[in-house]
Simulated scan of single mutants.
Amino acid sequence: MLNSRVRPLALLLCTLFTLPADAGPNDALHLYAGVSYGHDDNLLRVPDDAPAFDGTRADSWWQREGGLIFDKTYSRQRISIVAKLSKYDFNHFKQLDYDGKDVQATWFWQLGNHLEGKVGTTYEQVLAPYTDFASNERNLRRSRSQFAEGAWRFHSSWRVRTGFQRDKYDYELFAQRYNNRTEDASELELDYLPSSGSTVGLVARRVKGTYPYPRPVGPFLLNDNFTQDELKARVLWLATGSTSFDALVGYTRRNQPSFGTGRTSGIAGKVKATYQPRGKMTYTAAVWRDFAPLESTVVSYTLNKGASVGAQWDATAKIKVNADAVYERRNYNARETFARLGDIRDSIRTGSLAATWSPRPTVHVTAGLAHQARTGSAVLGTGSFKSNSVTLSASAQF
């Protein structure tokens, strides 16, 4: 019998070398299959000073997935469908075993030479992260989205675009049902499209969030409903042949009763830079300041400030190596419930390294390492933790 640490590698290699031939490049329908193995030395993100569930922090898991990919253009109309089913089996925490689902369907439509857009829907069922939730119970998160947008290029250098999207989230566990929500986002955008290929636009956006269950915090019941209005500049600047900047930055005003006095405003957005000199390296960097949701029993949103750097090395035609580092500071300071109780900020640092071998264009074998650490907040009960993980995966499209 193979050693338990050897079996994952053996299965990945067997999966790779017994795959059928690639599908033709013009085929609309492709089948997808994959298998992966992972190990995390702190799977449930248990704080350093807290006892581990069942006396153990580490666990390993297997993932097997399969599905289909359909992509075909009929005249000027393109239909794209991705449907995948996956199964996760954990070695120790068996109660976390679950079936994952991922469905995406989009119609990219075009009328004449000046009108285009897309209409679609998505559905996803995954295990919610344990970063901000202390439990060893299974907590599935189901998310559904419907979206529609249209753009009219009324001049060779000008375009107007409008869109609407509804996102709905619900959680399996009763303790997490206070994070169930529906978010409706509508936006209107005017873009200037110079001949250089860059884009400059102005985006007006409104997001309305509705939480069906008030959040209990001590003796209080918090209403997490919110309305967020944004006016931002969207810029894609192709500075040189090797350098580009992608930014969405502007003014955001958020009205949320459970967040301080109910209104928070200021500069928010994200700026990303990409540098790809001649050769085998690509570098990226980004900074952001924005609101973000989280799966917590205490709060629903934080105001985050973060930065990231990354690099990709195309070692050979078939091997790529990626390295990324992310730092994010999460600020809960406006929460009136926690006023004057002390520092209610925490930070998360994440680093990852992955190598991918593609012996054929539709076959990929990936090995990855990741490290995550949080500096917690005693007031919020988010303790400091560290986590290290390794993953091995093989996938094919045929």
Rank of each mutant, 00 (worst) to 15 (best):
M1A: 08
M1I: 10
M1P: 15
S4W: 12
R7D: 08
R7L: 07
L12D: 04
L13H: 13
A21K: 14
A28N: 03
Y32P: 08
Y37D: 04
Y37H: 15
G38Q: 01
N42P: 14
V46G: 02
T56S: 12
T56I: 03
A58L: 09
R64F: 12
G67W: 02
F70L: 07
T73G: 10
Y74K: 02
S75D: 12
Q77N: 06
I81C: 08
S86L: 10
N91M: 08
N91T: 02
K94F: 04
D97S: 08
V103L: 04
L111W: 06
G112L: 09
G112H: 05
H114K: 14
K118C: 11
T122K: 01
Q125P: 14
Q125N: 10
A128D: 02
E137H: 10
N139R: 03
R142V: 08
E149Q: 05
G150P: 01
R153H: 12
V160M: 06
G163S: 08
Q165A: 09
Y169S: 14
F174D: 14
A175K: 05
R177Y: 00
E183V: 06
S186R: 08
E187W: 05
E189V: 09
D191G: 02
D191T: 05
S195L: 11
G197Y: 08
T199M: 14
V200H: 06
R205Q: 15
R206N: 11
K208D: 11
T210D: 13
Y213N: 11
P214H: 08
P216H: 12
G218D: 02
P219E: 09
F220H: 06
L222A: 01
N223S: 02
E230I: 00
A233P: 01
V235D: 04
T240W: 13
T252I: 09
S258I: 00
R263T: 15
T264F: 01
S265W: 00
S265A: 11
I267T: 06
A268D: 10
V271D: 03
R278M: 12
K280I: 14
M281H: 11
A286D: 03
S296E: 01
S300A: 04
K305S: 10
K305E: 08
Q312C: 03
A315M: 10
V321R: 00
N333C: 05
N333D: 11
A339I: 14
R340Q: 14
G342I: 04
S347R: 00
S352M: 12
S352L: 13
P359A: 02
V363G: 10
H364A: 13
H364P: 00
V365P: 07
A367P: 07
A373P: 08
G376H: 09
T391G: 10
Q397P: 07
